[in-house]
Amino acid sequence: MAQRAEVLAAIDAYAMGSADLADHLILSLAQGEGSTTLLTFDRRWLKHPGCEVP
């Protein structure tokens, strides 16, 4: 798997966080590609560093 590190990081974050696994996976994969910000309307997810309102 090309993005094994990102997937494992998402699983670890999910185990400790309050968001869904899919949310953590999207953020981890985006960060792996160099993104610094994830745009979301999810109020719970907006509390996470790296997420903001579009």
Rank of each mutant, 00 (worst) to 15 (best):
Q31I: 06
T40K: 07
L8H: 03
A9I: 03
A2K: 07
Q31P: 00
R4C: 09
A10C: 01
D20T: 15
C51K: 00
D12L: 10
L46F: 02
A2S: 15
L38N: 00
A30H: 09
E52G: 14
L8M: 07
G50A: 04
A15L: 08
E6C: 13
H48I: 11
G17W: 01
L39F: 13
Y14C: 03
K47L: 12
H48R: 15
Q3R: 15
A5Y: 00
T40S: 15
S28M: 01
A30T: 08
D42E: 07
A30C: 10
C51H: 02
H24T: 00
I26Y: 13
C51T: 08
R43S: 07
E6Y: 12
P54Q: 08
L46K: 04
M1I: 11
Q31T: 07
L27I: 12
P54Y: 08
H48F: 12
T36P: 01
T40P: 11
A2M: 08
I11C: 13
I11D: 09
S28E: 04
T40A: 04
G50L: 00
L21F: 03
R43H: 08
L39P: 01
A5G: 04
G17Q: 06
E33D: 14
W45V: 02
W45R: 03
L39D: 07
S35G: 13
W45K: 02
A22N: 12
R43K: 11
G34C: 05
G17L: 01
E33V: 11
L21V: 07
L25G: 00
T37G: 00
L38C: 08
L29Y: 02
A9Q: 09
L8T: 05
A19G: 06
T37I: 05
D20R: 11
E33M: 15
E33P: 07
S28K: 05
A10S: 05
T37C: 01
V7M: 09
R43F: 06
D42T: 03
D12N: 06
E52V: 09
